[in-house]
Every structure is written in structure tokens, then in C-alpha cells.
Design a protein around this nucleic acid. Structure first.
Ligand SMILES: [Mn+2]
Ligand SMILES: [Mn+2]
Ligand SMILES: [Mn+2]
Ligand SMILES: [Mn+2]
Lengths: 221, 221
DNA sequence: TAATATCTTTAGACAAGTCTAAAAATATAT
DNA sequence: ATATATTTTTAGACTTGTCTAAAGATATTA
């Protein structure tokens, strides 16, 4: 069975909302995420339900079936592996790859992404630190990943991911040298606005709470 | 301006027929090549004419405008560069890449294929020996490429391309070791059916006229 | 609980691309 | 030159995915 690009994007969107909010996914949330109208969502959701990729009850929102979830995870796998390729091999910046990966993730081929995965030597995380599901749908986890805003003064860690992958945010991080793999240490914290001074490669920079709560850190030791 | 996958495929098909037969391209020829119906072709051809990508006169067939030709060549460039990537980097066989490249050629990105071209170190020919147009649409040529059936007894050459890229034919060539870059020498020719015995890497094989007329050779010296 | 606001669904329409069946034009053969 | 065959176009319908406008259901608030 093969699905249309649109169907795949709906499944991916449902998966994304489900894993962020837990509950069943409402029509409006989907419409919002997919930048479409609620009425369009209702239509599509009926189709997906008929194909047993989601369960749907009128006015009660939707949730993925096992099958739907498998498809969603597979698309996410494709997306993230392509992002690794674009950054590692074609030297794109991490803020330039998302749109292209949105297209590449829908290429229909049993083998293609597996071969790409081999070629890239089986990366576990994409350029934004997001985990890459394996062929069977298993999603790698990190031992002790926390948000930078949860790190206390004096503590150290390594940047392993970003929660927000908005392009402007990624460009800001690049500018500030706050990129994946960098070691950081919290030097000071201002209570009144929760901003922090952190040390990164011998330089001290001030970052807002907005920034620190969107950086994923692996605590040292 | 960006075009739909379907529009791009029509332009590519028109280009292919034009360069093979010279004349203007008939509705039925297009329908045949695109595996669709003549009525569908008429509809689409009107759209493309309105966009000034082709000229079209009722009952008289179509031909590409400069603009339409540029687009067609660009798609062919995409297709062939992706084919090189699939074979060189992902280790696909030459008979496995066409379908995937048919999808990849339509990815919308100004930069993507140029970066891929850099990554592949600017190949001039694809895995089937077909020339890869450069960014400006210039198509590389070979000095003295002829068909193997035009090679006389005793003459030598190197296989540089195939005219027919049918999968079964490509698999046959692979099996017979008649792949790109191989040096061959005509040893004998049978007049009654134009079959030939050729030497390839110390081995002698017999090939039919069907085969020899579909192999492109660069004559030695 | 009743009124109001918000969310969701339905009804009907549209664009892209395709199809079948029939009509119109062109080409071929006698 | 006329009849026949082939090619091409038109007319009308269908599918996918979208939209607006209006109606129906649910949630919120007084
Ligand atoms: Mn992405
Ligand atoms: Mn990512
Ligand atoms: Mn090809
Ligand atoms: Mn090719």
C-alpha cells in the first residue's frame, strides 16, 4: 500500500500533535498545523479513518492506529535521514534543510532511504538533534537530556538538540555559536527574567529564558 | 515560476520526441510516451501553450518554445545527476535507478541539484552514458561516438553509452560484462544476421545486431 | 439553566488532471 | 473524387484535495 503525499502529511501532523499533547487530536489543531481549513481536515480525516489509519469520531478528534503510526514514523525517518544527508554531504546549514526534506521524505522507494542510511553510516540523530527512528520504528533515546533552563549554576552539559526548529531561531543559535555538540556551563542566572549567562568555548553569552528552554542538554557526569 | 510534476513530464516528453524525430510532436505520440489518452494530452497541451512553454496549433502537433526547452533540459539535468548519485554513492545498479530518478527530478529547489553536482564532482555523463546538461543548458558531446554495429572487423573502441535503457537490456549487458568504460574489439561479423563476435576483457562473446546497434562506442585512436 | 462563543461538520463549488464516447478534421486508398 | 481509416478534439464526467458559507454540536459563562 502506498499513500499520497497529502495523506502522509496528515499522518505525520497527527503523530506530531499526539506526541506533544498526548490526547486525541482536534480538527482545528490539525487545520492549524497543516495550514489548511477545518472543513478540509474533516474531509481528509474521514478518508484516513476509512482506510483504518486513524480512528475518528465526529466532534471527538482523531488518533492514529498502529498502522497509521508506523507510516507516520516512517515518514519522519525519511525526513530526518534526508536532513542528515543534506547537512553532512551537501554542506547545507541546519536552518536550510527542512523544506527540502519535506519534499524528499515522500519519495516512493522501498530501498532508497535504507541505502542512504547505510551511506550515512546509520546516524541516530538529525541535524537538529531529533532522533531518527530505525527501519522497524524504534526511536533512539538519550540517557539524561534536559532543557538548558533546568540546569543549575555551575553545572555543565553538551548541546544535543533544539526544541524549536524555526529557521530564525536556528540562525540565531548559529550566530551565537550555540550549535550541536558544544559544551556549555551555566555561570549566572537572573531571577527576574530567568535569563542566564553561559560559557561556551571560553566566551560568555547571555541568553533569554525563551532560548534556554528550547535547548536540549546532556548533563556532564 | 514553478511548474507541476505533470507539466514538467509533458515538457520532458515533448523534448525527447522532438530530439529523436525532429518534426513537431503529435498528440498520439505524446499520449503514447506518457501512457495517457489523446484527449488528456489535448487538454494539457492547451495549458502549456497558454503558458507559452510550447506552440500548439490544432491538429498540427506541438513544439517547445525556448522557455519550454530550458525547463525540459533542466529536468533532464536533475534526472541524470540523481542517477549518478544513486549509482556512485548509493551503489544502485544502472538498471535500478530510472524510476527513482523520475521522482527525484521534480524536487523543487534552486540549489539542491547544483550542490549534488558539486558533491559528485560535476559528472558529464550519467550511468547510461547520457550527457548531463550544465546549469545553463549546454549539453556535452563526444568527439567520435558511433554505434557498435558501425565498427568494422579489427577495430577497437570503448563502450560509452547505451541507446536503449530498457531494464531487461541493461541487465543483459551487465550479465555479458558489456558495461560502460569497457574496451572492446570486433573480431568477426556474420553477414546473414549482422551478428558479431567481439572481444571484451580477454573473452569473446557473440552479440546480435539488436544489441550492437544499441551500444555507443568511442572509437580508439 | 440559558445565552453565547467556539469548534466541527455539511453542502456545494472549484482547479488539476484524467477518462470515455462521440464529433470533427485529416490522411489514405480506391 | 469519394469512401474509409486514422488522428485529434470536444463534451461531459470523475477523483483528489481544497475552499466558503451556513448549519449543527459542544463548551463556556453568566
Ligand atoms: Mn525538518
Ligand atoms: Mn530535523
Ligand atoms: Mn533515466
Ligand atoms: Mn540515464
Amino acid at each position: 500500500m502506498s499513500y499520497t503525499k497529502t495523506e502522509e502529511n496528515y499522518l505525520k501532523a497527527i503523530y506530531g500533535i499526539e506526541s506533544k499533547f498526548g490526547e486525541s487530536v482536534s480538527t482545528n489543531m490539525l487545520a492549524n498545523k497543516l495550514e489548511t481549513k477545518a472543513s478540509s481536515v474533516t474531509d481528509m480525516v474521514k478518508k484516513l479513518a476509512k482506510k483504518e489509519l486513524i480512528t475518528y469520531e465526529k466532534y471527538q478528534g482523531v488518533s492514529l492506529t498502529e498502522c497509521g503510526k508506523d507510516i507516520a514514523i516512517n515518514i519522519i525517518r525519511n525526513h530526518r535521514i534526508w536532513e542528515v544527508f543534506l547537512v553532512e554531504k551537501l554542506k547545507y546549514k541546519w536552518d536550510e534543510v527542512h523544506e527540502i526534506a519535506e519534499q524528499l521524505e515522500h519519495i516512493k522507494s522501498e530501498e532508497l532511504v535504507d541505502r542512504l542510511d547505510d551511506f550515512l553510516e546509520h546516524p541516530s540523530f538529525d541535524p537538529h538533534g531529533d532522533p531518527i527512528p530505525d527501519k522497524k520504528g524504534n526511536i533512539p533515546t538519550r540517557k539524561e537530556a534536559i532543557q538548558l533552563n533546568e540546569l543549575a549554576i555551575g553545572e555543565e552539559g553538551i548541546i544535543v538538540g533544539v526544541k524549536n526548529t524555526n529557521n530564525e531561531f536556528l540562525q540565531y543559535l548559529e550566530e551565537m555559536n550555540l550549535t550541536l555538540g558544544k559544551k556549555i556551563k551555566v555561570e549566572k542566572e537572573f531571577d527576574f527574567d530567568k535569563s542566564k549567562i553561559i560559557k561556551i568555548e571560553k566566551e560568555s553569552v547571555t541568553i533569554s529564558k525563551e532560548v534556554s528552554s528550547n535547548l536540549i542538554i546532556e548533563k556532564s557526569q
